[in-house]
Design a protein around this nucleic acid. Structure first.
Lengths: 287, 287
DNA sequence: CTGACTTTGGAAAAATCTTTCCACACCGAC
DNA sequence: GTCGGTGTGGAAAGATTTTTCCAAAGTCAG
């Protein structure tokens, strides 16, 4: 039958590939509220996950249980085991992992970064930057440094979907003058610069600002010197239990900016998304 | 009837004086293993406490419940509330901003994603994947899809610093066969695939797996079909208050993988970092 | 020691839950 | 467009649980 040493969570992971769509729906619901979402009667549990009773019944059998009651019992055993443990563990990140596992140390540090970063955002600046990013009269240029190049790329991919007139400036600084040539007042430059701050980026920001371009800077907690020419700048905490810096908070701020911009541009963006979808459907034919 | 704000524990204490001997026996059993000892069927629960079914039935009525099912439900609600505890900690991130400001909604959703993602990581898989990523005997290939291309790029930038023999497979799938040509047993393929899952990536994963390459998949909570050929796969929650998906949790998992790999490779990585630094210092002369 | 009262658990009736079956809907292939 | 295959939920059959009833056991005062 079922190896009793495996948790239901592990079983779900193991069999996830074999689950159908609505079975997954239930699996998700359970994982999101674990294990409470699996401890009521099958009827109730199914209704909460918005699937039918038979779906749940079939799924628990796939997981290796003889029937729902057995599944219920397994969950209960886990709960019991957890309760009788040493002390109730406070943070339940990677619950199965020991406290000192890198996963837990990492999660802890990054959470702090995120808290710090968001606590230090000036909401007015944020809204101001968003207005600027949503201004489709001007061109939006995006650029990053050695490490943040990927973030700039991510920003580009999304902003391109949200609004027209977005340009990604390649990482190779040799080509930047070409872009500057076309920058005019009212344009926007979204710029990433974390330590080690790059002199090239600073020169670029100065040139752009000199031409009347609004610079939005995303930097780390120590602030790139570009802050001085930027109209809006945001500091992201990058502490990490490793030799390099974590850019989670940075990326989170970026996503927040994208989400907010999308909200401002909405009617237009919706149309763009629809058209984009249609285009992807067409390329699907190639497979 | 019953004041819903009271916990069952409190109710028991309050009514304890009015309970009979065997009812107390059950109360003790419940309190000793709370709330698990009250979440099975009344039959089982009674047997565990070594009392009869009617005893339990009478007692829950004394506590103010209409019947055992209601009692059961109350316990479940408590458990559920406990599970969602950490979310309260969201407190006041972007403190000045109103609750409904996008920044706060965003932070809330993403925090949940991160919790979910980390709670569902199987530590053993994580460690296994890290061992694989740290194995410098084989080549490490990195590839992503339309959206995750940036993450693959980020992964590449970092892994390249951590270890030798890393290859970034361009986003253009036309060139992939060239890479597959050189893949051999013992190589590793780090692959990102979130919805809409891309058929090209699936084909690539199949080809690679067929050549004995170990596939490590990073996907979303709904799981890309590539899971089936992957040796290790990780699900990241991507819920976002916007039209697209958030990749914060995905990136976080990625960073955790990089950090862990770096730890495993350390003596060698340290050396690489030093040399890299020296190289950057040289390029600084150009500014 | 008796009798009234309380407590307890066995057993049947009632209610509910679980499973199974089946028809319909959906999707991809030809 | 049609066809085969898979996935889904409604509904009934089957199983279990919950409740109720009642008799037996225990307790205590007189």
């Amino acid at each position: 039958m079922t190896n009793p040493s495996q948790t239901v969570r592990e079983l779900i992971r193991k069999h996830y590939a074999a689950l159908t769509q609505s079975e997954r729906k239930f699996a998700q619901a359970l994982l999101e509220n674990y294990p409470a979402a699996g401890l009521a009667s099958i009827t109730i549990v199914a209704a909460n996950a918005e699937v039918s009773t038979p779906t749940v019944a079939r799924m628990v059998q796939k997981l290796g249980f003889k029937g729902y009651p057995q599944f219920h019992q397994a969950l209960l055993k886990e709960l019991e085991a957890k309760g009788s443990g040493p002390t109730q563990r406070r943070a339940k990140w990677a619950s199965e992992a020991p406290e000192s596992h890198l996963l837990n140390r990492f999660a802890q540090t990054v959470t702090r970064n995120i808290e710090q970063t968001f606590a230090n955002i000036d909401t007015e600046s944020f809204d101001g930057a968003v207005r600027q990013l949503a201004d489709t009269d001007g061109q939006l240029y995006v650029v990053g440094g050695r490490i943040t190049r990927s973030l700039a790329d991510y920003a580009f991919t999304h902003f391109q979907a949200v609004r027209p007139r977005v340009t990604y400036m390649t990482a190779s600084s040799a080509t930047w003058p070409h872009y500057v040539l076309d920058m005019t007042e009212g344009d926007t430059l979204l710029l990433f610069d974390v330590r080690r701050y790059e002199a090239n980026l600073e020169r670029l920001a100065e040139l752009a600002a000199g031409r009347g371009v609004r610079v939005i800077l995303i930097t780390d907690q120590w602030a790139s010197p570009i802050t001085q020419v930027a109209q809006f700048s945001f500091n992201c905490w990058v502490e990490a239990p490793s030799a390099w810096d974590s850019n989670i908070a940075t990326m989170m701020l970026l996503e927040a900016l994208i989400a907010a911009t999308q909200e401002v541009c909405w009617p237009e963006t919706r149309d763009r998304y629809d058209r984009l979808d249609a285009l992807f459907d067409m390329t699907r034919l190639f497979r």
